[in-house]
Amino acid sequence: MIYQVSTFLENKPGYLRRITTLFKRENINIRAMTLSATNTSWGILSLIVPDPEKACKTLNDNGHSSVLRQIAALEIEDKPGGLDAMLEKLESLGINIENAYARVVNDGETAFLVVDTHDIDNAAQRIQEAGITMVSKEIVYGIK
């Protein structure tokens, strides 16, 4: 199972920097991140890191409420239309995406799409049955 770290973030100047500074100090590499904010005063920062458990604990220990959330990482072609094709497939499977963000892998040919959705187990099963390639934990975390 693959996890992202989701952190509660107050929408105030310097708050995101607090986290990046903390990660620098703790030597935690951020592989991918996305910030979802509403028009209100807070948002959620989602992070892909090599060791999610450690990062989550570090954040909580430093007063940033964080949780691990299971995600699915789907392989997409790193070319025009690659993402569109994937989203079309997900739509046809009736998977409603809460949050999604993409990352290119170093080989320059593949990219993966991180998908965060309710009822992830059910969604993952349907994705697999539809023949979509799931990217391994090692590739997502960048520890291969």
Partner: peptide
């Protein structure tokens, strides 16, 4: 109380 769900916070 934080579960990582934006809609829940809203």
């Amino acid at each position: 109380a934080f579960k990582g769900d934006l809609e829940e916070l809203n």
